[in-house]
Amino acid sequence: MDPFVVLVLCLSCLLLLSIWRQSSGRGKLPPGPTPLPVIGNILQIDIKDVSKSLTNLSKIYGPVFTLYFGLERMVVLHGYEVVKEALIDLGEEFSGRGHFPLAERANRGFGIVFSNGKRWKEIRRFSLMTLRNFGMGKRSIEDRVQEEARCLVEELRKTKASPCDPTFILGCAPCNVICSIIFQKRFDYKDQQFLNLMEKLNENIRIVSTPWIQICNNFPTIIDYFPGTHNKLLKNLAFMESDILEKVKEHQESMDINNPRDFIDCFLIKMEKEKQNQQSEFTIENLVITAADLLGAGTETTSTTLRYALLLLLKHPEVTAKVQEEIERVIGRNRSPCMQDRGHMPYTDAVVHEVQRYIDLIPTSLPHAVTCDVKFRNYLIPKGTTILTSLTSVLHDNKEFPNPEMFDPRHFLDEGGNFKKSNYFMPFSAGKRICVGEGLARMELFLFLTFILQNFNLKSLIDPKDLDTTPVVNGFASVPPFYQLCFIPV
């Protein structure tokens, strides 16, 4: 058959498939802009700032609406009420993970971030239990974070109060905490193996944040037939998995079943207990991918939040002064901060919360999916439909947070200066898919920041009023603009 005829037939089939998918069930789905064949609503979305586009569309179609990214149908949730109703009140029905062709290629359905069903539930339950087990290797997770915080302070001392970009050092600290939990080992910041790991993690975040990856996920045929950065992403992930597998083999040879040292040991012990169960989800494949998931999810998000926190503290020296006064009063100079201190430091706690609220790190979270046909607000959402959640619409709700575009710790303080919780605080998402490392991340943010401010004054290279804190939105995360500062020993 003539190649031209084959091409026309293929394009015609794709067009018909697109029209059929977009028209099927439209009477039951939430409203939304009319999609174009094949490309859907992509032309109506700013790929570099999806969150802003969703906010604009919500003003037209309401808090629940339908979009098509290519052939992929998505239902968008915008605003606290619908997000709570879906992710919390109907948590089980909305607990699936959205379709990610690239991740599915890399992870093969294993791990904790992109798995679904029984596998996801069992691996998540085990990971939560293990991360909360403060007795691994007779050292609590808090001990590990405190140790890394001391190392971080010593690295900052080496800058000798000269101007520096904190990106690298602030990236090393949370990565080392995860390494300590998974591998029972922290690395020197100049260790070549550690630097290679950091390089792969950072490069992957840069790649994932590009519009090209959005295109690959919406048109998965590209993955096999086109060159691009997605190939580098898959190569980096394969490198990390190979490295983790080597460490798993080392653990198998040296493990003491009665004295687990780290996450890998705990997983291997669980595998041993379930070795007679042919349906067990505790396999080497799941261990390797879960460890890679924890490394990827637990490094860049925390380091970016820390980097943004220091920029905001530079911009608002009056806030920094209040935090340091609270540190001096509650902790002093002669001991290290600990998590028990947080309950006695409402202002510092409010500042950490406000940093996370203000920066809105992951504006749309990772997409969910419905696990069955769901009736939601008089609409029928078919099983498997991807759910896109606007966390921006919750964290920047102007009824809950007056002047949401302003950095103001009073958003989390009552009139008496006591810490005030808010149900709208969802930087880790909400419901059954809430970030498994939430507790660890909150511990790291509090301890790293208090250790830094206990030991250093922060000095800006320019007038604080002239510092730009506008986030650089890159399609996946909101990151701070480049800046330098000086760490002046107190």
Rank of each mutant, 00 (worst) to 15 (best):
D2H: 13
P3L: 14
P3A: 11
F4G: 10
V5L: 15
V6C: 14
L9C: 11
L11N: 05
L16T: 03
L16K: 01
S18W: 15
I19L: 12
P31Q: 05
P35D: 03
I39N: 04
I42R: 07
L43R: 08
Q44E: 11
I47Y: 09
D49N: 09
S51V: 07
S58E: 05
V64P: 01
F65Q: 02
G79I: 00
E81N: 13
E81T: 08
V82R: 03
V82T: 14
L87I: 07
I88K: 05
E93R: 07
F94K: 02
G96T: 05
R105P: 04
G111F: 01
I112H: 07
V113A: 13
V113L: 14
F114K: 04
S115Q: 05
F126C: 03
M129G: 13
N133R: 10
G135P: 14
K138T: 14
S140G: 10
V145R: 00
Q146A: 11
C151D: 07
R157Y: 13
S162A: 14
D165F: 02
C175P: 03
C179F: 09
F183Q: 06
K185D: 07
F187K: 06
D188N: 13
N196L: 10
I207N: 05
T210D: 14
I213R: 08
I215P: 04
I222F: 15
I222N: 03
I223D: 04
I223Y: 10
P227I: 07
E241M: 11
Q252C: 09
Q252K: 12
E253L: 15
S254R: 07
D256Y: 05
R261T: 06
I269M: 11
E272Q: 14
E274K: 07
N277P: 07
Q278N: 15
Q278P: 15
F282G: 01
A292G: 09
L294S: 00
L294C: 05
S303L: 05
L306S: 02
L306Y: 01
P317R: 07
P317V: 07
P317W: 05
V319T: 08
K322V: 09
G343S: 14
D349L: 09
Q356E: 03
Q356I: 10
R357G: 00
R357Q: 01
Y358E: 02
I362C: 08
I362D: 01
H368T: 02
A369G: 07
T371N: 12
D373S: 05
V374S: 05
R377H: 13
L380E: 09
K383M: 08
T385N: 03
S390N: 07
N398S: 14
N403G: 11
E405P: 03
F407P: 00
F407H: 00
F407A: 00
D408S: 07
R410Q: 11
D414C: 09
G417V: 06
G417L: 09
F419W: 05
K421C: 15
N423W: 06
P427C: 11
F428Y: 08
L453S: 04
L453G: 04
N455S: 11
L458S: 03
I462N: 15
L467H: 11
V473I: 12
G475T: 10
A477V: 15
A477Q: 15
A477C: 11
